[in-house]
Amino acid sequence: MLSIDKYAYENRIVNWSPKLKALLWLGGIILAFQPIQWLKLAVLVVVATITIYVTKVSFRRYLSWFYAIIPFVLLSVIGIVVTVSPQRSALIWPIKFVSVYIGMAKVMMPKAGQMALQCMTAIVCTYWFALTTPFIQILQVLKAARFPRVMIEVTMLMYRFIFIFVDAFDQIHRAQKLRFGYDSFGLMIHSSGILAKMLFEQVIINYEMMTKALDAKLYDGEFYI
């Protein structure tokens, strides 16, 4: 589930300063937002290539991280270009609907294309950052950016606990699936409910045990960062 995290610890530039990586990310984002279109495209290709090289990730797996988001980008593009107009000539693929036409607005096409390109370039840059910077280093960036201490402490703990919950989630989900708990829509809703309830119980069980463990470690109210 959290395969990105694993790559973040094993890439070629894991030891670079996280602040430098954050600055490079910012640079990439600025390039994605600047107006020259070919430069965006160049950044997209270059950063994607670099990412695959430094993380040693297979091209197929790299692409797989885009599957989930491309539908949403497309959906937004459709939202931008589809319009209703009385003039047939302003539209691509017009469909007559009563007295007006529904279709894609010609004037919006370049804008939609630019938005899609900008979006993809920015996503590629953020992936580069996420895949080369372990979350522990991101905490250092947050610290350097003077985020409040208590927020960083909670973030740090949350990062650790997420893996405990993911484990529990996987185990419960798998056990349900093997007992046919997800074989229909109704069963899926029901089983998801049980799963959520069981995870919720984990919050309490873990809290109880962790309280004891904190005492054993002489915890005094502060997590050092």
């Binding site: 650790r160 405990i164 915890y219």
Partner: peptide
């Protein structure tokens, strides 16, 4: 305790081991 996960609070080994000493 028996369950290791419930007594490790930091994500990097050396940080967690150092926790009690910081305290």
């Amino acid at each position: 305790f028996q369950n290791s996960d419930q007594q490790i609070f930091y994500s990097i080994v050396k940080d967690d081991v150092a926790f009690a000493l910081h305290n």
